[in-house]
Nucleic acid binder design. Structure first.
Lengths: 232, 232
DNA sequence: CCGAATTTTTGATCCAGATCAAGTCCCCGT
DNA sequence: ACGGGGACTTGATCTGGATCAAAAATTCGG
């Protein structure tokens, strides 16, 4: 593993405070791999042999049942993923695929669990991470159950604008069909919903979004930190 | 706190392995309260001052947004709830109300966090609990996004029968409207879906369900451990 | 730069599930 | 036992969103 990668991992909240010795041991068993786009990195149901860290590129988490498929999350560097499966030593609940050429760091789950037993700082960080993830999934459930699809889209755009530091114009992070699936809607419905939001000052050109009147959009979207703030 | 209650809490996986000293300290600050039915124990958005343990009775977790409300979970003894909010010292994401007369043990969140910092066994147990909870919410999301409402209901009944150790006849745990909301459907739609499942050998009389032909129902429901097994 | 494949949009239609409106049933307190 | 209120069911209707179909716009490999 490159020095830059080691520093990268180290900077993740989950690894930041653990003892050097433990961190070194974790890195010893780790390896890095670069994948082309559209590679299925992990498949739901399989044993969780590695904790994954996305170092470069883009990854989609998704799930399948009975011939259907839905996007569960879109990841960008630097993030770890499938921590819960690793910790519990249980099969993956979600699958993951690269959306573009991506570099993934693989940490053997056994090592992660072993070091977790020994290093208290690491254990605490894992708790914080899992609690945060848990709360984000709960927020997502509320989003799905309490809002219509157009409301979810409106709030998604508001959040995107926040992420773009409030810029009037910003880019959607991935193709629309993925965002549609993430929000629990079809591409067709997504497209129409976007047009409908034109009434509230949303303009769209390809992946470029312009929010003409944020006030107006927010008034419609009615965001709340209890659903829409990913940090709390 | 009564001796029986102390033993009760102690038997929860999350508290089972911690040091006696730490456990005693946790109990010292704890107190117990009995609530009548329909009392809102906690309200989303409020600071998470206590980790709650349901000792007797029944509790509903629910969430509100923009005048709408949805059931998030139904709890029965003995369970802790809102662990993630406590650990992260963040506002509750869900509200909770008693469905019947209930006894609740309240553990000051500050104590929980303090002891969590000191007692490694407790920290590990918290991780396991959070990872399990996280995975259950993910399963729930898959259930919501990948299945129609009648498929969710069919799988719910299969799970219920499992919980009743496979008995042909068993009782629904709460009023139907709550189950409907939990499954993300209206009471009317719930009622009709139940009738529709008659085709697959489901009979209903009040809260009493009889599964005439489990094979048939399972064939329709297509359960998978990656959604329907709460233990993995 | 061209052609093929994929995504996106638009239109038409369909359907699952919501809403509205009445009953009916059941529980519960007096 | 009776009356009242909520829960449940049933029917009628409506609608958000899905599906089907087919252009239009993009992307990408060669």
């Amino acid at each position: 593993m490159r020095d830059s990668e080691i520093r990268e991992i180290r900077s993740l909240a989950i690894f930041a405070k653990m003892a050097d010795e433990a961190f070194d041991r974790l890195c010893r068993g780790a390896y890095v791999q670069t994948f082309p786009p559209q590679i299925e990195l992990i498949t739901e149901g399989e044993p969780s042999d590695f904790l994954h860290v996305l170092s470069e590129g883009r990854v989609e988490m998704f799930a399948r049942w009975n011939g259907r498929e839905t996007t569960m999350a879109l990841l960008r560097p630097v993030t770890s993923f499938i921590l819960a499966a690793t910790v519990r030593d249980r099969p993956y609940l979600m699958s993951a695929r690269t959306l573009e050429k991506s570099r993934i760091i693989l940490l053997p789950s056994e090592d992660v669990r072993a070091i977790f037993e020994e290093d208290a700082a690491f254990a605490r960080a894992v708790v914080t991470e899992l609690a945060t993830d848990y709360r984000n999934v709960v927020k997502n459930t509320k989003n799905l159950k309490l809002r219509s699809s157009i409301e979810r889209l409106a709030n998604y755009l508001v959040r995107r604008q926040d992420r773009a530091e409030g810029a009037r114009t910003f880019q959607l992070p991935v193709e629309k069909r993925k965002i549609a699936s993430l929000l629990g809607m079809t591409p067709e419905n997504f497209s129409r919903a976007l047009r409908t939001l034109g009434e509230y000052g949303v303009e769209i050109d390809g992946l470029t979004v312009t929010i003409r009147d944020r006030e107006d959009l927010v008034h419609f979207a009615k965001p709340t930190p209890l659903i829409d703030d990913p940090s709390t």
